[in-house]
Amino acid sequence: MEEISWSDFEKVDMRVGTILNVADFPKARKPAYQLTIDFGDELGIKQSSAQITVHYSKEELLGKQIVAIVNFPKKQIANFFSECLVTGFADDNGDIILTTVEKKVPNGAKLM
């Protein structure tokens, strides 16, 4: 694994956001949801596509605080533009478990 410098790490802007809306994404190649996420006053509302349908129902995602990278360029996935990358870890089957916070923090809080 290549080492990075502290300045490299500082370029990655990871923030906490609360999921406001979850919709099915039938045009995605793999099962996915379209997420609407509130990142607070500074960043506002962003959208993301996430392949997290194995471990999460739409209902349990509503109101969940997640960690996302918010400074990637927009990426078009089918007819949808993803504005941030929701982070997570793969389980033994390669299905994603979301990165979340243990206790509620303000939307837009930056990973330090």
Rank of each mutant, 00 (worst) to 15 (best):
L43G: 07
P31F: 00
A32N: 03
K30E: 08
T53H: 00
D38F: 02
I45T: 07
E60W: 04
D24Q: 13
L62S: 14
T53F: 02
F81W: 09
A28R: 01
N71Y: 11
I52R: 00
K27D: 14
I45A: 04
F25H: 07
G40Q: 06
K75H: 11
T87A: 10
N71D: 10
T36C: 06
F72R: 11
K74C: 11
Q34L: 14
E83G: 12
T53P: 08
S82Y: 00
V54Y: 12
I19V: 14
I19W: 04
D24A: 13
V54E: 13
V86Q: 02
K58Y: 08
K30Q: 04
L61G: 07
Q51G: 05
G17C: 12
T87E: 07
P31V: 00
D24H: 14
T36V: 10
N21R: 15
A50E: 00
G63L: 04
K58P: 13
L62F: 13
N79E: 13
T87S: 08
G63Q: 08
Q34Y: 14
A68W: 03
A23P: 04
R29W: 08
G40A: 08
T53E: 00
L61W: 08
Y56R: 01
N79G: 06
V70R: 02
S82H: 00
P31N: 03
T36F: 06
L20G: 06
T36Y: 11
L62D: 10
Q76E: 15
C84V: 00
I45C: 07
F25R: 00
L43N: 09
V70H: 03
P73R: 04
Y33H: 04
V22F: 04
S82G: 03
L20R: 12
L61Y: 06
G44F: 02
D38S: 02
K30R: 12
F25I: 01
F25D: 02
T53R: 00
E83I: 01
Q65V: 06
R15E: 09
Q34R: 15
Q51W: 03
E60T: 09
A68C: 09
K58R: 13
E60V: 10
C84F: 02
L35I: 01
G88M: 03
F80Y: 12
D41H: 11
K27M: 13
Y33S: 05
N79L: 02
V22I: 05
K27P: 14
E60S: 10
K46E: 11
Q65T: 11
F72H: 14
V67R: 00
S57V: 04
D41P: 06
Q34F: 07
Q47S: 15
Q34K: 15
P26A: 06
F80A: 03
E59T: 11
M14N: 13
K74Y: 13
G40P: 09
D41K: 10
D38Q: 05
A23R: 03
N71A: 09
Y56S: 09
K64P: 10
E59F: 08
T18W: 11
S49M: 05
I77M: 01
L35Y: 04
G88E: 03
E42V: 11
I66K: 00
M14W: 14
Y56G: 04
S82E: 02
V67F: 07
P31T: 01
D24L: 09
A78T: 14
I66W: 02
I52H: 00
P73M: 06
I37R: 01
V54M: 09
N71C: 06
G88H: 00
R29Y: 13
I66R: 01
I69Q: 13
V16T: 09
